[in-house]
Amino acid sequence: MDWLQVVVLSLVQGLTEFLPISSSAHLILVPVLTHWEDQGLAFDVALHLGSLSAVVIYFRQELWRILLSSLMAIKGRGVDQDARLGFWVCLATLPVSIAGFLLHDLVSAGMRSTVIIATSLIGFGVLLGYADMRRGGTQSEYQLGLKEVLWIGGAQVLALIPGTSRSGITMTAALLVGMSREGAARFSFLLSIPVIVLAGGWEALSLWQQPQAIDWPALALGTLLSAISAYLCIHYFLVVIKKIGMQPFVIYRVLFGAWLLWFFHG
């Protein structure tokens, strides 16, 4: 891999992983527009590690409180809001974990066409716009109940469809059950931690079974750039949605999906 490829792929991954615009939709364009060879599984693992580092560092205080409270709950000292939030994150991750394991081959082999990606971009983008327009909720991630968590966790399964956007569909579901924009985004970002761990772990296992030559400098730079861009993305997204909401991202999704249909099938 040359350095330009490392930089472009790292920034695309970092900037689109947490925005509700679908990283898979953007990543399919890179080899098409640049004619670069596949970057390899090791580099994919490095990019996931960068994204994971960013969200863990950003939510480090919340995660530390969740860990301590969960340990206290296990010892029988009561369940506070932090321990409950940690349980909700684990519970909401179960549906997509099970579905991802069972449907992995189908999704990776049969659902990565540009038609599916473009249609998902547009359709789920419009749904996000509807959820944002009808919002009025004020719930934070600490005020969720069992029904809301199961709804959001079930919706996350739809993220297996390329072009849907994991962050987009979880924010949509969260807005529909009465969460605030910031609360929906923060819960979505917390949900990304176990999902990225599972996805990265699956790729790492495949890499272990099929060892490849590793370009360590490229992996180090890719991890760093992915982490920095993802951290900045999380920070500024939470600032921006308070002021302008989700509609700019909805418009972008619809236009991008329409362009994909025209570019590949027009």
Results as ranks from 00 to 15, higher is better:
residue 213 A to H: 07
residue 115 V to G: 00
residue 147 K to H: 10
residue 105 D to H: 12
residue 43 F to V: 05
residue 152 I to H: 04
residue 261 L to R: 08
residue 173 A to E: 11
residue 189 F to M: 06
residue 54 A to D: 05
residue 238 L to D: 07
residue 60 R to H: 13
residue 193 I to R: 07
residue 175 L to W: 05
residue 18 F to S: 10
residue 157 V to I: 15
residue 185 A to L: 08
residue 93 T to S: 15
residue 3 W to I: 15
residue 26 H to P: 09
residue 230 A to C: 11
residue 212 Q to K: 05
residue 135 R to F: 04
residue 160 L to Y: 01
residue 134 R to S: 13
residue 163 G to N: 06
residue 145 G to S: 08
residue 100 G to H: 08
residue 264 F to P: 00
residue 2 D to N: 15
residue 191 L to C: 02
residue 203 E to A: 13
residue 257 G to C: 02
residue 149 V to I: 13
residue 194 P to R: 00
residue 157 V to Y: 03
residue 145 G to R: 10
residue 128 L to M: 11
residue 240 V to I: 15
residue 255 L to E: 04
residue 257 G to V: 00
residue 47 L to G: 05
residue 65 R to M: 11
residue 213 A to T: 14
residue 83 A to F: 07
residue 99 A to E: 12
residue 100 G to K: 09
residue 9 L to Y: 14
residue 33 L to S: 04
residue 120 S to M: 14
residue 204 A to Q: 03
residue 210 Q to R: 14
residue 261 L to I: 14
residue 259 W to C: 08
residue 220 A to I: 15
residue 226 S to E: 11
residue 35 H to F: 10
residue 266 G to F: 02
residue 22 S to L: 10
residue 6 V to T: 13
residue 253 R to C: 10
residue 61 Q to V: 14
residue 114 T to M: 10
residue 209 Q to A: 12
residue 149 V to K: 04
residue 137 G to C: 01
residue 69 S to L: 05
residue 48 H to M: 02
residue 119 T to N: 00
residue 62 E to H: 11
residue 249 F to A: 12
residue 23 S to G: 07
residue 117 I to H: 09
residue 125 G to N: 02
residue 112 R to I: 12
residue 233 C to T: 15
residue 260 L to H: 03
residue 123 G to I: 12
residue 236 Y to A: 03
residue 162 P to A: 09
residue 121 L to K: 01
residue 9 L to A: 14
residue 229 S to G: 06
residue 221 L to E: 06
residue 178 G to C: 09
residue 57 I to N: 06
residue 180 S to A: 12
residue 90 C to D: 01
residue 148 E to W: 03
residue 210 Q to W: 01
residue 175 L to D: 06
residue 153 G to M: 10
residue 49 L to D: 01
residue 83 A to Q: 02
residue 136 G to K: 07
residue 32 V to H: 13
residue 50 G to F: 02
residue 258 A to N: 06
residue 11 L to C: 08
residue 154 G to V: 00
residue 164 T to R: 11
residue 137 G to P: 07
residue 36 W to C: 04
residue 116 I to D: 11
residue 112 R to H: 00
residue 55 V to I: 13
residue 80 D to R: 09
residue 200 G to M: 01
residue 232 L to S: 01
residue 53 S to V: 13
residue 217 P to N: 09
residue 87 F to E: 09
residue 50 G to W: 05
residue 33 L to P: 04
residue 133 M to V: 14
residue 253 R to H: 12
residue 179 M to K: 03
residue 121 L to C: 05
residue 155 A to Q: 00
residue 192 S to Q: 02
residue 193 I to F: 07
residue 59 F to R: 01
residue 76 G to Y: 07
residue 261 L to E: 07
residue 30 V to T: 02
residue 42 A to R: 03
residue 195 V to N: 05
residue 226 S to D: 12
residue 77 R to L: 13
residue 72 M to V: 03
residue 193 I to P: 05
residue 27 L to Y: 05
residue 250 V to F: 04
residue 120 S to F: 09
residue 73 A to Q: 02
residue 88 W to M: 07
residue 198 L to N: 10
residue 98 I to E: 10
residue 88 W to Y: 14
residue 211 P to S: 10
residue 177 V to H: 00
residue 227 A to S: 14
residue 155 A to D: 08
residue 216 W to F: 11
residue 65 R to I: 03
residue 216 W to H: 05
residue 47 L to S: 08
residue 5 Q to E: 14
residue 257 G to K: 06
residue 73 A to M: 13
residue 237 F to W: 09
residue 91 L to G: 06
residue 120 S to R: 08
residue 119 T to W: 10
